[in-house]
Nucleic acid binder design. Structure first.
Lengths: 205, 205, 205, 205
DNA sequence: GATGAATGAGGGTTCATTCAT
DNA sequence: CATGAATGAACCCTCATTCAT
């Protein structure tokens, strides 16, 4: 019952935050949308930002669980295997973003509307994501599968790519097949943009 | 004289928005910091969001000018030349972000705190950036220098990489030499992460 | 409970509007005078003008109810009966104005201080009053009791007389007996100023 | 030159006050409409209300001059003469209101939007008007031309009639011939509404 | 636990007025 | 005299949060 109300509040809030933005959404709107009384809100959440944070936490927990957590670097032996893994991760990311489009929108577009304290909380999620990616990169580096580029920098670049890949998959081209998107992302991430046929000296035969 | 006040207001606002966030910064703070009266603010800016937008516009105008505008795709003939150009662009981006650290912070961290109207304005900058990148990619594709990946997707991935590269250069590793960062970004962007020594079938001799 | 607060707010506002005028009265004054919090005001009224309008509406509803509504023209047969009715109406008007001196003051003196929208609303009351009077005049004209003067013009002249009669009864001569005032108004309205003894050709034998 | 500016300011203000109301008209609007600088306003008028008062004073001076001042009670001897005079006064009033429609509108509709001090000033005009009418009535009473009704009360009733007659002539029926309106007003004022044919005991043969 | 009326601090914006040029 | 940029006091209204029922 109690959990039910919290869930209704979160669903209502996710919808409204997405439509009107965090700042423009009033607690009164949320409770109206959820069909409970104004005061009830504060029995379930400390305040408005903390409801937002709960949504964000949910998003990140789910995302990590369905991506990196399911695809440990350890078992990989060849570049081919890595490529397969990476492609699956990209596909999982894109599917996750589309499945939780509201939450994705919130994370990508509303996180900065929060007051400093909660904003830091959200940023910590991104940092943890970058850390996890950095660690993953280090492992595959030690396996000799990827180049010796500085992992923290690359991790942050990947974070940016992931953000915008989700943005693209959800807002720009919501109908593009996720496998196809995942394939392109993987190709770009692992082998870069340069045409192998071009006269370059980087990837010699 | 008049322009001087506008400049003082923008400088004061950039500082305060960066420190406390857009929402938490009151117009009263800005004018106090700039040393003018409250009413004077509204002689120079329509309202608080529009001052923010002025800062953002400034940022993007400068960024485009110092990067893509100076490095047209047309003249390129070889992958080596492209790589050199791309590296210079990355370096310019990183230098720009560091030179205008306050504005960069605002764009990366505060843009979504705006009311809907102004937020749309900011988003249009990102879209225009993506468009410009997509066009650039198309041109180098037609020159046969880069692979036939879908340009709009890649453009958005690059936008994400740029955002996080600036983030990294300004916040995470403010002392890392920009040339070095630019080199790594270029390597990643053009040739990908995969170790050429690894057993892969993607870049055959 | 809720109605009680609205009543307190209206009473406080009527007093302050009367003393200091609509514009000079701040919402803060009203709530202080009513003993509630600033925000409470907006639970009961949309804004300051709409509280004023509520007072005005109350005034007109009561005035109509105690005057024209109680004295239909239909039953009248002789000029004597009409005169008696008219005198009772004048007496009712004067008593009403004195009984609700604050509201009367507001209607007579503050109505034009409102913003356009609400001012129109008030003006509509006057127009409805004129309409009602015009209809009354038409009925008694058809009964042959009054002259064939253009009813809408006369109705507006009567509106002016009523306004100033209330003004006189409330501000100029608050102690004059209302029956006496009503008698004079009736005499003036029905038989005019001209001395019958004077040599005139208007009311021939 | 100086007077010219004052005149332009008054004309501009009369127009704007009429259209948007006193409160909603900003000094900035007036000077823009008059084609002078903001500061120039204060070389010619103490402040916004005092410009309004100047317009009102002008209105009343002209009105008195063209009505009562030209029609002294002294020379009258018969009711017929009085009726003729009264009708001319009514006609003059109506013509004046129509000729100075903007000023009339201001006096009838905006006077109460003023701050207390200036509002009192305007009210004094009405009181002086009532006084003048009362004196006129006394004189014609002493000449035996009009009934012995209390002059101050009647004076105020006449003020109300005049206000609403102007209102009618300017707003309700701007095309009705003024002589005709003046005739009806005179008939009503001097001989009342009652049909002489009706069975009444007030005006016996 | 649930309610929702009451709270009251907070801040963006307006605009009459001034005064250095 | 004229200018118009600068001033800053004033005020309405919002809305997150509380608490008596």
């Amino acid at each position: 019952m109690t959990d039910d109300i919290a869930r209704k509040l979160k669903a209502a809030a996710a919808e409204l935050f997405t439509q009107q933005g965090f700042t423009a959404t009033r607690v009164a709107d949320i409770v109206a949308n959820a069909g409970v009384a104004q005061g009830t809100f504060y029995l379930h959440f400390e305040n408005k930002p903390s409801l937002f944070v709960a949504l964000i936490d949910e998003f990140f927990a789910g995302l990590i669980e369905e991506t990196l957590a399911r695809h440990p670097a350890k078992r990989l032996q060849t570049g081919e295997q890595l490529a397969a893994e990476v492609e699956e991760i990209w596909a999982a990311i894109i599917r996750y973003g589309r499945k939780h489009a509201l939450l994705t929108t919130l994370v990508l577009r509303e996180a900065h509307a929060l007051p400093p304290e909660q904003r830091d909380h959200v940023n910590r999620h991104f940092e943890q994501g970058a850390d996890a990616l950095a660690q993953y990169l280090e492992e595959v580096q030690q396996l000799g599968l990827v180049k010796n580029l500085p992992v923290r920098l690359i991790a942050w670049l990947l974070v940016g790519m992931i953000e915008r890949a989700m943005h693209y998959a959800v807002f720009v081209a919501p109908n593009a097949p996720s496998v196809s998107l995942a394939g392109h992302c993987t190709e770009f991430e692992l082998r870069g943009l340069l045409n192998c046929g071009a006269a370059v000296s980087g990837c010699p035969s």
